[in-house]
Amino acid sequence: MREAATLARSERNMATTPTRRDPVLAKNPSAASPSTMSVVAPAVGWLIPGAGHLIQKRWIRGLLLMTSIVLMFVLGLLMDGRIYRPNGGDILDILGFIGDLGAGGMYIVSRAMDLGHTIVPHTTADYGTKYLIVAGLLNFISVADAYHIAIGKKS
């Protein structure tokens, strides 16, 4: 008897959950199917910086993010920056690889086309290496932002 009452109460709570979410959905139309968008937006945003915002119709933000991150990565390559590989050796190399990996599609393309250097050829090229890593890290932040928009946490 007591179990039946508990079950009925939990069912009632489940029934009220969507109504509590309604204001969020009304505020953010793109959160209409949060489960799909919360997966697609970060994935697309990781592959192409800013695209996670663009597919959610945040045009200006998406374009600004795309411009900033892509330009930073390209400048890093032009400055002869080092592209880290997943060799699993030195801890700093692993961290560098994680940073580079954040650039997503650009990292994959640069590896496929054998762009960048494996060693730093001159002193100022170290700036290029840092540009490449930070471009990846900024893209991680951009991906997290796209996810927050998808779940309706941010407008």
Partner: peptide
Amino acid sequence: MVLSHFNAALLFSVFASVVFGITVRDT
């Protein structure tokens, strides 16, 4: 491509500030 220390830091600041501004605040 060789940038001076100042130019490299200036460009870095611009790009990072744009991303921080967009991702940290709402309006």
